[in-house]
Design a protein around this nucleic acid. Structure first.
Lengths: 208, 208
DNA sequence: CTCTTTATGATACGACCGTACCATATTGGT
DNA sequence: ACCAATATGGTACGGTCGTATCATAAAGAG
């Protein structure tokens, strides 16, 4: 057998190229030739590792969510160990806002895939993110935990607040993307609600 | 001169066909031939009224927002005259949720255009909706008005709450679209926040 | 009634895209 | 050392898409 190249590594390299070029031109405008050029390989090689464009797109989505999960995890780890519920939620939400190039690309492409899945049933059948309410459950749990320790308002409905925070973050992320809103104003809105849910003077020492 | 056909009417008819087929197949998958077939006219006719596909897409967006504005206006009118701030806000938000086919199509296409505008500067230069924060200003004003008459919590920041309500509505609309959420649960979340902002027992008589 | 302008139709062209096919270099197995 | 399977490249094919071109029916103006 020839050069003994790691298949998975090559596939990720190509998927990365897909994400790069799609982030630049839009997912709808990306062709196999663009991906090949971006990855610095021949068109044939892209076909070799992904037999069809559909499979390439699916793998691209998979890689995108993987990278994003890792990114959020890194952000969480950077807040120190056990930073408290509020700081954890802050880190989760702020990591989702398109503030730098990587998160901007993620947001754009994830939105593109979502919209595509509405009219593409093959894409809709895809796991998409490993269940979409994982984040919702995590946030709900964090809020409940804060309520039990007296750090958050007991009158708040934890799950509804979790849904709301995630929903606001998503839309404001898109607003930042299209230039209708600045990351700062989005952050301010989120802080407003965190201040409302959590008892005052309960911000984490590491984030401010 | 020949049959003396109303130009604007024809253009609207074709734009309507564009919206129909795009709502079915997705905006990315729509071609001029599809639009022509849907409108029951020849391809040449579509070219005659819109010289280029780009112009057709722009006009489609324009028509889409016009129709939506009219729809929201009709919903507002249906709540009776002067229904109070809360009922007005409810009507505005609920009219935006993709609960029937028309609003579902609107939500899908508007999202598609938004995502497209990120990587298409010609589309980004388009007025899109007649300024995007018109709704934000309207909601802000309604909340402030309710605060002045004692119907809403004075401690709430009117503009931030308006932004939040719209943001939540937008994301949950998409969630409904992709089947992650039911219209009922989305409505419940919105009601939760309206209950929080507005003083209790202050719901309008026409909506419940 | 003809003429000229407007409205509509049929079809062709060039480009691009995803895919398939053919060719060939590389290297592990025996 | 040679064979065979794997890995990579070049290129061609069929289809579709947006657009352009040619043709013609319809109808007000004189």
């Amino acid at each position: 057998m020839p050069k003994r190249v790691d298949h998975d590594e090559r596939r990720t390299q190509i998927a990365e190229a897909l994400i790069q070029v799609a982030g630049r031109q839009g997912l709808h405008a990306v062709g196999m030739r663009d991906v090949a050029a971006e990855a610095g390989v021949s068109l044939r090689l892209v076909q070799y590792y992904f037999q069809t464009k559909e499979k390439l797109l699916f793998h691209g989505l998979q890689h995108l969510t993987d990278r994003f999960t890792a990114r959020v995890g890194a952000r969480l780890a950077a807040t120190g160990q056990d930073p408290g519920p509020r700081a954890t939620i802050e880190a989760l939400l702020l990591a989702s806002l398109p503030t730098d190039e990587e998160s901007r690309t993620f947001h754009l492409l994830y939105s593109s895939y979502s919209i595509l899945s509405v009219t593409d049933e093959a894409l809709a059948a895809q796991p998409f993110i490993d269940n979409p309410d994982a984040a919702e459950n995590a946030l709900t749990q964090l809020i409940q935990q804060a309520q039990e320790t007296g750090q958050a308002d007991d009158g708040a409905d934890a799950r509804t607040e979790a849904i709301s925070l995630l929903a606001m973050t998503a839309t404001m992320g898109t607003s930042i993307l299209v230039g209708q809103r600045t990351p700062e104003s989005a952050t301010a809105v989120l802080q407003y609600h965190l201040d409302r849910i959590f008892n005052s003077s309960q911000t984490s020492p590491t984030t401010r």
